[in-house]
Design a protein around this nucleic acid. Sequence first.
DNA 1: CATTACCTGATTTTT
DNA 2: TCAGGTAATG
Length: 715
Amino acid sequence: MPSTFLEDLNPVQREAVEHGDGPVLVVAGAGSGKTKVLTYRIAHLIRDRQISPFAIIAITFTNKAAGEMKQRVAQLVGPVANSMWVSTFHSACVRIMRREAPRLGFNSSFSIYDSADSERLIKLCLKELNLDPKRWPPRGIQATISDAKNKLMSAGLFADFASNPWEQRVADVYREYERRLEEASAFDFDDLIMRCVEVFDRFPEALAYYQERFSHVLIDEFQDTNHAQARWATLLAGKWHNIFVVGDVDQGIYAFRGATIKNILDFERDWPDARVITLEQNYRSTKTILDAANAVIENNVMRKPKSLWTASVGGEPITRYHAQNEHDEAAWIAEEVAKLRDDGMRLSDTAVFYRTNAQSRVLEEIFAKTEIPYKVVGGVRFYERKEVKDILAWLRGATNPMDSVAIQRAAQAPRRGIGDTSLGRLVAFARENGIGLGDAFARAEEVPGLPKRATGGVLEVVRIFDRIRTAGEDGFPVADIVQLAWDASGYMNELQAERTFESLSRQENLRELAGVAGEYDSNAQDASLTGFLEQIALITDTDTVEGEEAGVTFMTLHNAKGLEYDAVFIVGMEEGVFPHIRSLTDPEQLEEERRLCYVGITRARQRLYLLNAWTRSLWGQVGHNPPSRFLAEVPGELIDEAEKERSLDRSGFKLGSKSVPDQFKVGQEVEHPRWGRGVILELARSSIGLEATIHFPAVGDKRLDLTLAPLKPAP
DNA sequence: CATTACCTGATTTTT
DNA sequence: TCAGGTAATG
């Protein structure tokens, strides 16, 4: 009865794939083949159980993961796979809301505001409410509102529950913010989910339609869903109860954005007849790496005990390197990567992970110097670059005359005599007359108090919008419309006149944008300007990671989730860096950092390197941090300490004379009869010999002369 | 209204 | 360090 393709599954995986109707929770450890289970499950539904692909919806966390999954299913069952929905929560909701938004009074050509747009809008609200942005930081307010939306709390509900002055103020802003979003017929990212749930809740016939259609709901990375998303899924699967979720509480690293591993822990409560299947066999890493990962994660209290195992044995020991500073750290990696390459490892199979994006700079410098190819994932995102957002604002403003954020942005890029005051007048005029900002622009001459210069500028903006809109309606290729936008607005001219290094790269980015549009033109079945804008609104840089290029990959630990490499370097393993300083006081956040560490470790197939630096320049200041607690959690017998045998001078630190007691090095642990154990932070020559700065946990930092002080290396 | 010179304050971020 | 925001000037 079972079909042949199921034979490359192990018994547990197979059980999950072949499970009949009803809710299933697959608890899948790192590297246990969870994507495989998900894809095979879908293939099995289609091939062996004759479920129509049309009735299947699969949710992943990135567009890239969605694309890959669709492709893998297509390999198993052929092109019929294309008629099923494989997308992110957000894309699925956009698709639904394009139909349903009018029920909530939104235009079906609504705009989607990314976090930068929504922050801008919040600033406008603060101004309106006469709140000082210094006392009420827009980012913080945005975070609070986002949090509320992730918990499905509307502005009204939030106000009712506001229990302190901060929340009460936020409630005011929240209300105003919602008003303006509605006015602009726009959704922010969180709205896409929350408003969709609202439709489901308020319009049973709408819910019934989607429930009926999707007889099978599958969700990946369930540990990173927030309450709103879990509720959305629960509603959707409410008729057939065929909800199949895959997740790993140990890999939940987005609690700071409202994700809650509670969704996994509560799954069995929400679906009492749920079948729970645990995948614990790891097919990715060596035993050594797995032992390290298990040992680290065991220090978390808030988890279900689970232990990954592997059929493979041994493996190279984990390499530990104590760098003197971040330059030494990067240089050591460069040397090691070169060695690995000489031993036959492809650069594209190696990666360096760090906690914060700022840490990539030193790596980039050193790798550029040593001419080892590399690529950086993340950082300043393409679609968040100023010039890209400016041109997109032109496109958005042209297609949605209600989109006041986009229109205002376009009107001031480039500058054409329209200042903040004039914009304020236009916005007020629009509101008084109950029209969109686009229409207010068209009637600029009627707006009281608008200077001549501004009026002229505004009318020019209107003409440019018209040209873009017409081009869109006439079905011109989107790539051409992008060019039209930067030509007609004078944006490109301005950039070309600037002639700086910076402006050159901005021009390049715009051409890249036209390139993306061109790709869209040739790939999308029914390409349109609005279709392009929609697709772009939900895309991120991580969606375009290509593993095939010949280079070492640099990225944050967050971005590393879901990926794997033969050799992995984790840098900056220092208290305050990783775990991050902001997490040190909160046990829950600390556990999240530890999960991040677990994710990092389990990305490695063959080799794992853990590094820390004794001193690190951050924000223009040198700081020194003790080694990360996570290092101590890795069992010593798995670790091989790398020697600092290589030239010390790459760190800028030189030991000149032989008279120096060379048993002492920066980073070394020493013992003092009075102050106990300490660590050497710095060595410098003094008048008599060598002076050391040593950090003793008991008493703090001390300066001692090595030739005199009663110091000996710690045992 | 736009430009320029300080000043500040700073995670991670699938969407 | 550096980017982004504010305050004073042209």
